[in-house]
């Protein structure tokens, strides 16, 4: 099962739960699963970047998620 980790400032959306394990095939399915578990979290996640197996995505969509994937949500990176 893929491991999904939330940063501290998203714990308000997950009732304080920092980590969850899910079996999904891609990022879109992951978002749907998280929204089902914590209705409303999708809005906060849409404003976040996500790292899937070390690769940071500002706009993930159908990126594959494997059974052993590590997924971290994080603030979007901007720049000057």
């Amino acid at each position: 099962m893929a491991t999904v980790v939330f940063p501290d400032h998203l714990l308000g959306c997950t009732n304080g739960q920092r980590q969850v394990e899910l079996l999904v095939d891609n990022y879109r399915e992951l978002l749907l699963a998280l929204e089902k578990q914590w209705p409303g979290i999708g809005e906060a996640l849409a404003k976040s970047a996500v790292a899937i197996d070390g690769q940071i995505y500002q706009d993930a969509f159908l990126e594959p998620v494997n059974a052993d994937s590590e997924i971290f949500f994080m603030a979007r990176i901007e720049g000057g």
Partner: peptide, 9 residues
Amino acid sequence: QAPYGPKFP
């Protein structure tokens, strides 16, 4: 593991 989550390549 970077402080912001993912492991560095």
